[in-house]
Design a protein around this nucleic acid. Structure first.
Lengths: 243, 243
DNA sequence: CTTGTTTGTCCACACCGATGAACAAGGGCG
DNA sequence: CGCCCTTGTTCATCGGTGTGGACAAACAAG
């Protein structure tokens, strides 16, 4: 069950992030399609907690820096090593494709860091983007780091849906692909999840966290280069982890 | 009316900011005193939107950097000039008291920037802290920047409650104090709101925003120094605004 | 293995809170 | 100044949602 008002808080914050200037009650209500009375209550709640203020009289609300301080404290607890973010930038520059770090979230994976390709045709990803854990290269790279029991627990919960001709449709197929990938030395995904999308991943254990490094782009640009790309990622990762 | 689940989102984020490490469903439910089922729904909602992930299997959830990126975008829209934050630090160093920037939020004021005094006995304030607009020095410094009509609108809504012998109890008294302060050249508050608390403020119009610079501390340390302090603040502010 | 305990998930109902509608307050314009 | 349209605020009602409780799964201990 999704908690509507919780989602509305996020929606409101995203709204302000796009807007980048104060909004009156009516503007928020109109733009987000909420009843004025509900908007009134929600803005009131956030204001009462010190998360909204009125920069100028009659120009409406805007978030205080309180959220930023909060988020910074949260993020500083377990930052990614600089060597890793540097590696992402290097990979993007050398390969021209999008690179990122992913982690598990239930039966899905989330990007917790992304460095985007500069090319017009590219894999468009953002921090927070989610995708199924069992049909993505990074998802399987994360699964490979878990014990058999926990992996089974997760895989039992995934809904096997067909996204294309290559999509594996059972736990056994996924387990087999993981085994193959471990032997091969890298994880890959050839349009299992999304047409034309190809990803190459490596497991990235970091302070106990089960993460994955992934480079992804259009199938036609990626396919030929996969082994070389994987080797490059391996080298970069070993260097970064040694640092 | 306060929107419970919206408040819960904030509570949860503050919880993670304090905790600085992942929390399982049960831990959250216990620590925040929520039913497990409700906690389940709330965590699920935030996870689904890409705001939570699981760093390690079976160790529970932690916020992704997505919130941080969001908050940064929001905060970068209208940053305080560096000259202002520098001024705060200088004032704290020279006076030993807490300094901050406040703005309006309905019938209250919120701190949007704070630099705390290092002394053991001090005014304890944080970004997001709120207090009544009509019985604080910074509140009146903000009110003084508004037109008579808007000021009247706000003052009509405040509930005049007695917080001490010096608390003004009517719109007229507040208006009179504002007039006196404008002539005097600074705004002050001698224990009107909180016993022992003394604040000195100056209006700070900044890119159309109606803000206030405030220095506050215990009455006995402040009282003697008010004129000198106000003069120092005036000088600093003029320099900062010129930059 | 079996058992007991903890943790996570599901569901139906009661109740609380979101909302539509009515009202009040602004403020723009002639 | 007075009209009208917009914006903000209040409130009673009904529908949606939070929650208790039952269940299932995972783990720890024996």
């Amino acid at each position: 069950m999704i908690v509507r008002q919780a989602a509305h808080v996020l929606e409101l914050l995203e709204y302000f992030a796009n807007r980048r200037r104060p909004a009156t009650l009516s503007e928020v209500a109109q733009d987000l399609g909420w009843p004025r009375s509900s908007t009134f209550n929600l803005l009131g709640t956030l204001a009462e907690r010190g998360y909204l203020y009125e920069p100028r009289a009659r120009e409406g609300f805007y978030p205080t820096p309180r959220l930023f301080l909060l988020a910074r404290e949260i993020s500083e607890a377990e930052p990614l090593p600089e060597a890793v973010t540097t590696l992402l930038r290097d990979l993007v520059e050398e390969t021209g494709e999008t690179a990122g770090i992913a982690a598990a979230s239930g039966t899905e994976v989330v990007f917790i860091e992304v460095c985007e390709s500069p090319r017009p045709i590219r894999y468009f990803a953002r921090v927070g983007l989610r995708m199924p854990i069992h049909i993505t290269s990074c998802g399987r790279a994360i699964l490979s780091q878990m014990g058999a029991a926990e992996r089974a627990t997760i895989l039992r919960k995934v809904g096997f849906e067909r996204h294309g001709p290559a999509t594996p449709m059972s736990v056994a197929e996924v387990e087999a692909e993981i085994r193959r990938s471990v032997e091969r030395g890298w994880f890959q995904n050839l349009a299992e999840f999304s047409q034309d999308l190809c990803g190459v991943s490596l497991p990235l254990p970091l302070g106990g966290r089960q993460l994955a490094l992934v480079v992804a782009g259009p199938l036609n640009r990626m396919q030929e280069r996969i082994p070389a790309l994987a080797a490059r990622m391996r080298r970069g990762l070993d260097l970064a982890l040694a640092a």
